[in-house]
Design a binder for these strands. Structure first.
Lengths: 380, 380
DNA sequence: TGGAAAATAGAAATCGTTTTAAAAGAAGGG
DNA sequence: CCCTTCTTTTAAAACGATTTCTATTTTCCA
C-alpha cells in the first residue's frame, strides 16, 4: 500500500479513512512562492522586436504572414527569435484590435442528451478545422442560464453563436439580429425568431416509427413524452403532434389513454397504469432518450418483457439502446451531420457578413433496427 | 404537410427527397445586407461617459463598483445611462488591462466517457458560481490535440487549466509551472509532473470489486481493459496492477488467460475466447465504461447469459449499467465531488497566487449493487 | 551618376478598457 | 477669508497587439 500512496510528495488516500488524512483532505497546503511575487514579466511583441533588431510593426507583419513587407533575412531572423523566446502573441490584444475572436459559443440546452454531445463534437471538429475555437456552455434547461450565457459570450465578443434553446425567449435573439451577430438554432426552434435552424424532421421520425410498428401488426400504439409545459419544446411538441396526425392518417384508433406526457420520475407509474388497462397498448414509442431510459428501467423492475409483452421504439440517440438486451429499435438523428452543418452555416455568417435568409433545415431520421418490436403477425 | 414546411420563410424538408429541395439543401441563400456594410459602431465606455456628462474614468469606476469615488447623483446618472443604452463593457479590453480573463480551460481526454461529462458539469457549476466561465476542449485521446489546445488556451490568457491528460507529455506542463499558470490533473496523471491531481483510488475500486465477487463465491475471476500501450493511461494501469495485487492478497490463483487488454473492437473476440476456455472465468471485471459496453453487447450477441453464465462488475459511471437488464453492479466514481474539488483547487491557485504543494488526491469508489453477480454459494 | 520605383523599416494611432496621479470643488477651522 | 482636508472628478498612461502612413534604403535603368 505504501507505494501507491507516494506517487507524489503527498498522496492522501481518501478511501483509507485514516484520521491523519481527514483534516487536510480538501485543504491543499500552499507555500508562498518567492518568484511569484516578483511579477512575472510577460513576453511581448516588443521583446521580439528588440531582440531581432527590427520594429514591432515588422514583427506584427510577420505574425500575420504578410512576408512581402520584409526581406528574407529579416523574416528568418524574426522566426528564429520567436522560436528561441517561445513567444506567443497575446490573443486578447489581437482580438481587441482585429475585432475578431475566432471563438464561437455553443449553448446547449441540456448536455445530458446524447444528441447534444454528438452534435457538439461535430461542431467542434468542423470549427477547429477552420481555426475557430468553441466555447461550450450548458444551460441545464434553465432559460435564465441561457440568457446569462448569451450575455457573457457577447461580452467576450464571440464571433457567432450556436444555440440549443431552452425556451422561447424571442427578445434576446431579436437583439442579436439588430447587432448583426450570426447565430443558428439546432435541435429546437424559438418561436417568432427569424434565423437559420437545424432540426430533425420529427414528424417523419414518428411516422417511421409508427409504420414500423404497423408493419409488425401493431395497432394499439402508445407514446410517452416528457411534459410539454407552457412553452412546449419543439421536438416534444412536434413528435406528439406528429403522432396524432400519423395515427389518424394510418386509420388507427387513437386512444387518449395511450398518450402520456409526464416528468421522468413519474414515467414508471405511468407505464404501470398503461399496462394495467383492460386493453393495454402492445407497443410504445419513447419520444426521447430520457423517456426510453425510464421506460426500460421501469419495465425491468415491473417485470414487463420486451418485446414479448411490450414492443418499444425510441427516438434519439441513446447509447444504451444498442447495448440493452434486446437492442432497442430507434430512430436516430444524423447528429454529426447536423453539427457539421450548423458549424458551416455559422462560419458563412461570420465570414460573408451577409444576412442569411431564415431557413429551417429538416434532417431525416434513420431507422436502427433492433429486436424490441414483436412481430404480431407471425405471433413470434 | 404544408403547414409543417412553413415554419419560417422557407422550410426545406430533407426527408421528403423532393428534387426541388436537393440543390439548396446545404447552400443557405444569402442576401446582401445594406446595413451590415455601413459598419456597426459599437457602444463604448466613451459613449456612456459623454451621455452621462462625466469622464470615462468615472464610468470605469462605476463598472468596477468602486462607488466611493463618486457622488450618489453621478452614480445614479451613470446607472441610468447604461440601462438606456444597454451598454455592456467589452470583455476583451477588460481582460487585457486587468490581466485576468475569468476563464478556465478544461481539456478532456475523451468526452465519450460518462465520467468526463459528469466531472465537467460539476466543474462548470462550481466555477460559474464564482463568476468564472469554462472553456471545454476535447482532445479525443490525441496528445497533439491536447498540446494544441493548451497553446490556444494560453494564448487566450486563461486563468487556469483543468486537464484530463491523454499521455505523458511532461514538458508542456513543466512550462506551465515556469510561467506560473495554475493547473490540475483529473482522472489521470502525467508522470514526472509535480502538480495537484485528483483521481479515483483505482486499487480500492478493483479490490471492492474482487471482494464482492469473492463474497459471492467466485474464484475464477478475469479482467478486461483497453490496451495499455507504451505510455499506459493511469486508470487502466492502476486497475490492472491493482487486480493482480488484490488477487494475490486474496490468495486466489491468477490465471493469465483471464487477464486481457484489447482494443474495443476486439473485445468481443476476446470474450468468446475466454468463454471457450476449458475452465472459463465465472466473473469478469470490466475496467471501464467502454469495456463494459462492448462486453454487454458481445454477450447479447453470443448468447452469454448474465449473470447465469458470467458475472460482471464494471468500473466507472456508464449510464447504461443501471438500465441494462439485469442492472450491472458497478464501482462508481464520485464524479461530482471530483469535479467540484478540481474547480476549488484551481480557484485557490488563481486567487491565492501561491504555489501549491503537489498532492495526489484519491477518491473512494462506491459500490452500486446490481443483479449482474451470481451467488455461487447458494447456487442461485 | 542621378533619379524614380520598389523594398524595407519605423512612428504613431488605434482597439476599449483600467488605474494612477493629479486637479478641482466643497467643507471646515482658525 | 485663507489654508487644510476631504470628496469628486478628470487626464493620461498603460495593456499588447494591428494597421496605416511616412521615411528611409536599395535597386534599377537611362
Amino acid at each position: 500500500m505504501a507505494v501507491r500512496r507516494k506517487i507524489d510528495d503527498y498522496t492522501l488516500c481518501l478511501s483509507c479513512g485514516r484520521s491523519e488524512c481527514t483534516e487536510r483532505r480538501f485543504h491543499p497546503i500552499m507555500e508562498k512562492s518567492k518568484e511569484r511575487s516578483l511579477k512575472m514579466k510577460k513576453l511581448t511583441i516588443d521583446d521580439v522586436a528588440r531582440k531581432a533588431g527590427v520594429s514591432k510593426s515588422t514583427v506584427s507583419q510577420y505574425l500575420n504572414q504578410r512576408y512581402q513587407y520584409m526581406s528574407e533575412a529579416t523574416r528568418q531572423r524574426i522566426a528564429q527569435v520567436i522560436e528561441e523566446l517561445e513567444y506567443r502573441p497575446n490573443g486578447l490584444a489581437r482580438s481587441l484590435k482585429q475585432n475578431r475572436t475566432y471563438l464561437v459559443g455553443v449553448i446547449v440546452a441540456n448536455i445530458d442528451y446524447n444528441l447534444s454531445i454528438r452534435c457538439v463534437k461535430a461542431i467542434e471538429s468542423e470549427l477547429q478545422s477552420r481555426g475557430i475555437q468553441t466555447l461550450i456552455c450548458n444551460a441545464d434547461e434553465d432559460p435564465d442560464k441561457e440568457r446569462s450565457h448569451i450575455e457573457t459570450l457577447l461580452a467576450r465578443q464571440v464571433d457567432g453563436l450556436i444555440v440549443f434553446p431552452t425556451a422561447h425567449q424571442a427578445a434576446i435573439y431579436e437583439k442579436l439580429n439588430e447587432q448583426h451577430t450570426p447565430y443558428v438554432f439546432i435541435d429546437r426552434l424559438v418561436e417568432g425568431v427569424r434565423t437559420q435552424s437545424l432540426l430533425l424532421d420529427n414528424e417523419a421520425a414518428v411516422k417511421m416509427g409508427v409504420s414500423e410498428l404497423i408493419a409488425s401488426g401493431h395497432s394499439r400504439i402508445g407514446i410517452m413524452t416528457l411534459p410539454l409545459g407552457v412553452q412546449p419544446i419543439t421536438p416534444r411538441k412536434e413528435r406528439l403532434a406528429g403522432f396524432r396526425k400519423v395515427m389518424e392518417e394510418a386509420g388507427l384508433p387513437l386512444c387518449e389513454d395511450y398518450v402520456c406526457s409526464a416528468a421522468a420520475a413519474d414515467l414508471a407509474d405511468e407505464l404501470a397504469k398503461l399496462m394495467a388497462l383492460p386493453e393495454p397498448p402492445t407497443a410504445i414509442i419513447a419520444a426521447n432518450d430520457i423517456v426510453l431510459a425510464e421506460l426500460l428501467k421501469a419495465s425491468n423492475r415491473q417485470g414487463i418483457q420486451i418485446p414479448q409483452q411490450l414492443s418499444v421504439i425510441g427516438i434519439d440517440d441513446a447509447e444504451f439502446a444498442q447495448i440493452y438486451n434486446p437492442a432497442v429499435t430507434t430512430l436516430s438523428q444524423p447528429a454529426r451531420e447536423m453539427g457539421t452543418q450548423a458549424a458551416k452555416i455559422i462560419m458563412a455568417g461570420i465570414e460573408d457578413k451577409e444576412k442569411p435568409v431564415p431557413i429551417t433545415y429538416r434532417f431525416a431520421p434513420s431507422l436502427q433496427v433492433g429486436a424490441s418490436v414483436k412481430d404480431l403477425r407471425r405471433g413470434e
